[in-house]
Computed example of a mutant assay.
Amino acid sequence: MLIVLAFILLFHLIGAVMLFVATIHNAWWVVSPAGQDAVYADLWLACNATCHPLANSHTAAATYLQVIQAAMILGTILCCVSFFVFILQLFRLKQGERFVFSAIIQLLASLCVMVAASIYTAENHSFHDDSLKKGSFGSSYFLAWVSFPVTLSSGLVYLLLRKRK
């Protein structure tokens, strides 16, 4: 049982690290013009040699960008809270009970990540200025999509897991 618990904790921590990197790293959108330095854009800034805010990111027309930012931050926070709740429940629950509360929090975290990545997929060309139009999705975008099934399966494992001897 100790080995199973170690794998569950490791799986959860991998999901949390993936969410942190996807939220913080500056590579949601990448433009690589020929002969020039690549331009990387994340949810807040576009950077090449210097960083500048995304065009119109503070206006009402770009509220979906603010929703993406909020959903990714909320998903990361919920994933961390779920981990701490799981640790608390590990020592507080009676034998045979399930980790339902930590599972619900983890499933909400995966829902937030899915919402953020889906909105970014649908609206990514709307908030990029003309210099960023001809780009492609970056590593942080793909990491966000990979972290969705990781957090979802982690939440489902918590839901099915019973405390045993």
Rank of each mutant, 00 (worst) to 15 (best):
L156N: 11
A27M: 04
P149R: 01
M114G: 12
A22I: 01
L108C: 13
C79W: 05
M1N: 10
T50E: 04
Q66L: 08
R92L: 05
T151D: 08
S126D: 05
R98T: 06
I77H: 02
L156F: 15
Y141M: 10
Q36W: 09
C80R: 06
H25G: 01
I73Y: 13
S118N: 09
Q66A: 12
H12I: 01
G35W: 07
T59D: 14
V21L: 10
I119Y: 01
L107M: 08
L156S: 11
W44P: 00
L111N: 00
G96N: 04
M18V: 02
G155E: 01
D42I: 09
S102P: 06
Q36K: 15
G35T: 11
I14E: 00
S131D: 14
D42S: 15
E123A: 06
F91L: 07
Q66N: 13
L107N: 06
F91M: 06
K163T: 02
L90K: 00
L152D: 00
H128V: 03
L19T: 01
N48L: 09
Q66Y: 03
V4P: 04
V150M: 02
F11G: 00
V115Q: 00
F20N: 05
S131V: 14
G96H: 02
A70W: 05
L93C: 00
F137V: 08
A38R: 00
C79N: 10
L143G: 06
L45D: 12
A109C: 01
N124M: 07
A60Q: 09
L10D: 02
V81P: 07
Q106S: 13
T76Y: 13
F11I: 03
A27C: 09
H52S: 13
V39G: 06
I24S: 14
C79A: 15
V100C: 04
A117R: 00
T63N: 12
T23G: 11
S131H: 12
S153G: 09
V31N: 06
F83W: 11
G138W: 08
Q89I: 00
W44S: 05
G96I: 01
T63L: 12
A103L: 06
I104E: 03
F142L: 03
A70L: 06
S153T: 13
A55Q: 13
I73Q: 08
